[in-house]
Simulated assay, not measured.
Amino acid sequence: MPGGAPGAGAVYSDGVVFYASGSGSAGRLTAQQITGEEKPEKWAVEYAGSDATLLAGDGRVVAVGSGIQVFDASSGRKLPGVGEEDTECAHPLLVDGDLICVARDGLTVTDTSAPGGRRSLAGGMAGAMKPAVTADGTVVVSAPGEVRAFRLRDGEELWYHVDTLLDEKAGNVSIVGDRAFVHEAITVTPYDLDGSGENPPGAGKLFDMPIGGTPPSLIAHGDALFLASPDDGRVLSGFAP
């Protein structure tokens, strides 16, 4: 980065890295070209949200913090956003211009080209974890005791699984091929994406890793799974269940 200063929350889209630096009134949001021979700085704008989550895609940069700020990815021009009083956005995802957020009672979907228009998805799923979205627009989300799939376009529920024996369990979702993997602590459980109605899980996989401490992170690629522990740096790999 210019001057050797590290950038926070960097995200990549179409050959450009967008990152925040500085703080308060001295903060900046920068677009840095990383392809081609010249690799110029495309633009930099004043930015007071260095602790926000950045997302990029569909010609926009979206910063989710105390409010939702939207920038034009080619020029840095600020576009209409969402005020602080309207913001409830945990675990944000940006999919084809739609900003998907976890709220208190399910998910919300905001069209970043018209941020005043927001709709609800997965209503009643309190305590939801980070969802995942397939290439054809299926949203899979886990909350304590349940996993559900919805069509992003119109919100129709496609399948579900409710397990009252696991009322305190929920996990982040990863999409790999034709399955969704729900990752909770050291277990990974698969669900068929083409299921309908009640969709029971397949046989899960239990990783040989200590329980407790900071939850490990999952990276799924093809038939391989990698579980990384931030506490001791250990990374375990195995085949998907």
Rank of each mutant, 00 (worst) to 15 (best):
P2W: 13
P2D: 12
G3A: 04
P6V: 12
G7D: 06
A8Y: 15
G9K: 09
V11G: 06
F18G: 04
A20S: 10
A20Q: 03
S21C: 10
G22T: 09
S23I: 04
G24F: 00
G24D: 01
G24L: 01
S25W: 15
S25T: 10
S25N: 10
A26H: 13
A31K: 05
Q32F: 11
I34D: 11
T35A: 08
T35I: 05
E37V: 07
K39E: 06
E41G: 04
K42Q: 05
W43V: 00
Y47K: 02
Y47P: 00
G49I: 04
S50F: 02
D51N: 04
A52D: 07
T53C: 03
L54R: 01
L55I: 04
R60C: 01
V61C: 02
V62E: 03
V64C: 01
S66P: 06
G67E: 06
D72F: 03
S74L: 09
S75G: 03
S75Q: 04
G76W: 00
R77N: 05
R77A: 11
R77Q: 08
K78H: 07
P80Q: 00
V82Q: 08
E84P: 11
D86F: 15
D86N: 08
E88L: 09
A90D: 13
P92A: 12
L94C: 10
L94N: 11
L94P: 09
V95R: 13
V95C: 02
D98Y: 15
L99A: 12
L99V: 13
V102G: 10
R104M: 14
R104F: 15
D105E: 14
G106V: 13
L107N: 13
V109E: 00
S113N: 15
S113K: 15
A114P: 02
R118F: 03
S120F: 15
G127R: 02
A128C: 01
K130Q: 10
K130I: 03
G137M: 14
T138G: 05
V139N: 05
V141K: 00
P144A: 01
G145T: 02
A149N: 09
R151N: 03
R151S: 05
G155C: 06
G155H: 12
E156Y: 03
E157N: 01
W159E: 02
W159D: 05
L165F: 14
A170I: 11
G171A: 09
I175Y: 12
G177E: 07
G177Y: 03
D178A: 12
R179W: 14
V182C: 11
H183C: 03
D192W: 14
D192I: 10
L193K: 01
L193Q: 00
P201Q: 11
A203I: 11
K205I: 00
M209T: 05
P210V: 02
T214D: 03
L218F: 14
L218T: 05
H221E: 06
A224W: 14
L225R: 04
F226W: 14
L227N: 07
S229G: 07
G233N: 02
R234W: 02
G238W: 04
G238N: 11
F239H: 09
F239A: 06
